[in-house]
């Protein structure tokens, strides 16, 4: 403590440095409390820690706003990163002692302010995407993804700065997160575009990142009818999709349901469950196509007509009990949704 107070005094006395007191004093205090945390592991110091850092950063942001050039941008990015990591740690600690974890939320609103400083015109704007990505990470962790919207709007509508001029690292992270949002909204063409962008800009050496992207890109591709090679699933350890793909290949509905149930928790957590569940229609489509191909081999002239009873029978082989009415319903949906060309006749 004594050392810290000395430092404070020295900074204030030195004329040259006094203008930086607002920045430096809190830095020392933050360091002090960080050290205390390691020594005492006291909850109170930990709780105060992010607040102190926040104060420190606020002063910095204030200064940064006034500077015309973006010379300190890198430092600002470090702060944005640090504040998120510290808040995450603080929340973990808070949760473990039964307190409400709220620091990450606070970090979110703080970074929103930082974003405000960067999002305007001028050279600082190049850092906006980095802060955006940090915000995404916070919002996804907290489950408050609806907050992403305003940031995305700001990035995508402002024409002052071309998206392509942002650093590659940020562009790829941004596309990954917005792609994930599109998956949740089941906007597959947009999700496909964004996640594919992320994949092509991702370094082939970063296998963990590729895996994270594929985890969302695969369900999207499956939904638009593109199946991955087994080799790809194995290489990136995405084996949870193996049986889903197999179910599609076989046209086996029961197998699809089973595959989803097997990894239900995982799919729910990553937010792709509902997307995979909808593959049911693709399974029906593939099954009917198989029936058509088999019929064609037997009698090419009558292949274009498929009896509902035949589909009922095929489903029965897969131990799915459906009556003619339901099959008719499914076929009418497939036609209506353009997954199949044709018409049906009710007798």
């Amino acid at each position: 403590m004594a050392g810290l107070q000395d430092a404070n005094r020295i900074i204030r006395q030195s004329e040259k440095c006094s203008q930086y007191a607002d920045i430096l004093v809190p830095v020392f205090r933050a360091l002090q409390s960080y050290r205390l945390r390691n020594l005492v592991e006291s909850y109170l110091a930990l709780k105060k820690l992010p607040t102190l850092l926040m104060e420190n950063y606020s002063a910095f942001i204030q200064e940064f706003r006034n500077w015309e050039s973006a010379w300190a941008l890198e430092a600002l990015c470090v702060i944005a990163y640090e504040i998120r990591i510290l808040a995450e740690r603080a929340d973990k600690e808070l949760a473990s002692i039964g307190k409400t974890p709220e620091k990450l939320k606070g970090a979110g609103s703080f970074l929103m302010k930082v974003f405000g400083v960067l999002a305007g015109k001028g050279p600082k704007r190049v850092g906006a995407l980095y802060v955006t990505c940090q915000l995404f990470k916070i919002y996804f962790k907290l489950g408050t993804v609806h907050l992403c919207r305003s940031v995305i709007r700001s990035i995508e509508t402002a024409r002052i700065f071309e998206f392509e001029e942002f650093p590659v690292r940020d562009k790829f992270t941004y596309m990954y997160y917005t792609g994930r949002l599109e998956v949740c909204n089941e906007n597959f063409p947009a999700a496909d575009h964004k996640l594919s962008y992320a994949l092509t800009h991702c370094s082939p050496l970063k296998e963990a990142n590729i895996r994270m992207i594929l985890k969302y890109l695969i369900p999207v591709k499956l939904s638009i009818g593109i199946l991955p090679w087994n080799l790809l699933l194995d290489k990136y350890n995405l084996t949870e999709y193996n049986n889903v793909v197999l179910a599609l290949k076989r046209g086996d509905l029961r197998f699809l349901r089973h595959a989803l149930e097997e990894h239900e928790d995982r799919f729910l957590r990553s937010g792709v469950y509902l997307v995979l569940e909808k593959l049911e229609l693709q399974v029906y489509q593939r099954l009917i196509k198989k029936i058509y191909i088999i019929q064609k081999q037997k009698d090419p002239n009558k292949a274009h007509q498929i009896k509902f009873e035949v589909i009922v029978k095929a489903l029965k082989w897969f131990e799915m009990d459906m009556d003619v009415d339901e099959v008719e319903c499914i076929v009418s949906i497939l036609i209506y949704k353009n997954l199949m060309k044709g018409y049906f006749a009710h007798e």
């Binding site: 076929v331 209506y336 018409y343």
Partner: peptide, 25 residues
């Protein structure tokens, strides 16, 4: 309403769908 649109869209034109059956469904 979706059911009606599906039946209307995919049904065979020369063989209209009986309403009695649809009302049961």
């Amino acid at each position: 309403a979706l059911a009606l649109y599906c039946v209307n869209y995919g049904g065979y034109k020369l063989q209209p769908y009986p309403l009695t059956h649809l009302s049961n469904l």
